[in-house]
């Protein structure tokens, strides 16, 4: 985002400069259709401010407070506590374990999911396959299943006695402490492969066919074309899906929350968001707010780093 960030500071700077140099009236003449612009931008701007910016600010504010009590029975009051809550966050073992757990989840699940999505998209785009319409729809259907519902369904499919595949589930306990994380990974993969496949497939459709024709005439096979022509061209789409997947992984909540009623191995601090939820219902909102802030910052840094990393690789 460095380019656009630079742009933004530029725009900001020049805006500040113009307002300093010119009288407002002159500016009014220069910006045409001011009323219309306001009418277009304000509705979204106000809601974005109220339900995005204010909550972020409020979370930061709450995370800087601590609860003080006057004696044992005194009223609790919130007072400024500096980074007290953040010290607690960094000392909180279960929280960091939950971060480690979703990172492990992401390192395994995201490449598998996107690898499958890429494979299916390339097959859909290749002349090898017939019945593309059917496959495209069939693979996309699970995306219409909400995460909660998908988790409930798979919870039954995994269960040792209710599963239609009880021959398997009687012998392998997918809901055990060792496997339940990967059982959840399967649910997430099942829901999102088709969605990511479609995004990548749309990018493939946008490549001009002449590019393949040239490669074909040079004697390149389908595999070669996919590897040397298609994949480099659709890299931006793959990066986009990867970033959304990384964000999604760190935010895991619905699936593990549902699995708590199928498996005792899913604790109340299984994922970072579960930790936030559990902490806020204690209630310890200040600590929960600090968890939220740390999680959001971690998410931002991770997706941002990933972006920079892939951009540098592309530039080489």
């Amino acid at each position: 985002m460095s380019a656009s960030a630079a742009l933004s500071t530029d725009a900001q700077g020049s805006a500040a400069r113009t307002s300093r140099l010119r009288k407002p009236r002159v500016q009014k003449v220069r910006v045409a259709h001011k009323g219309a612009i306001l009418a277009f931008v304000l509705p979204f701007g106000v809601l974005f401010g109220l339900f995005y910016l204010v909550p972020i600010g409020y979370a930061i504010y709450e995370s800087l407070l601590v609860i003080k009590r006057e004696g044992t029975f005194g009223a609790a009051t919130e007072v400024f506590g500096g980074f007290t809550q953040y010290v607690l966050v960094f000392q909180n073992g279960p929280f960091w374990q939950s971060i480690g757990r979703v990172l492990m989840f992401g390192v395994v699940q995201v490449p598998i999911m996107l690898g499958l999505a890429l494979l299916f998209a390339l097959l859909l785009d290749s002349p090898l396959l017939r019945g593309k319409r059917f496959f495209r729809l069939a693979f996309f259907v699970p995306y219409a299943v909400p995460g909660v519902i998908a988790a409930i369904m798979w919870g039954y499919l995994y269960s040792p006695n209710l599963s239609p595949f009880s021959a398997v589930t009687e012998n392998i306990n997918f809901l055990s402490a060792d496997l339940v994380l990967w059982a959840i990974a399967n649910v997430v993969t099942w829901v999102y492969v088709g969605y990511n496949m479609l995004i990548i497939y749309s990018a493939l459709l946008a490549i001009p066919t002449e590019l393949y024709e040239a490669a074909r005439l040079d004697g390149a096979g389908q595999l070669r074309i996919a590897w040397s022509v298609k994949i480099p061209l659709i890299m931006p789409a793959i990066v986009l899906t990867a970033i959304f997947s990384i964000i999604g992984t760190l935010q895991l909540l619905a699936e593990p929350q549902v699995f708590r009623s199928f498996s005792s191995a899913v604790t109340s601090t299984f994922t970072p968001n579960l930790t936030v939820y559990t902490t806020s219902s204690i209630p310890n909102v200040n600590l929960a707010a600090a968890f939220s802030v740390v999680l959001a910052v971690a998410t931002f840094i991770l997706s941002f780093t990933f972006l920079k990393f892939t951009q540098r690789k592309e530039a080489k």
């Binding site: 656009s4 960030a5 742009l7 933004s8 725009a11 339900f51 979370a59 760190l250 959001a296 998410t299």
Partner: peptide, 24 residues
């Protein structure tokens, strides 16, 4: 003026996970 700034703030919003906003 401020068009790019608005757009960049909104783009940052794409990267802010919705669940981080639920509690505040």
């Amino acid at each position: 003026p401020g068009r790019e700034l608005i757009f960049n703030v909104v783009l940052g919003g794409v990267l802010v996970p919705a669940t981080a906003l639920a509690l505040p």
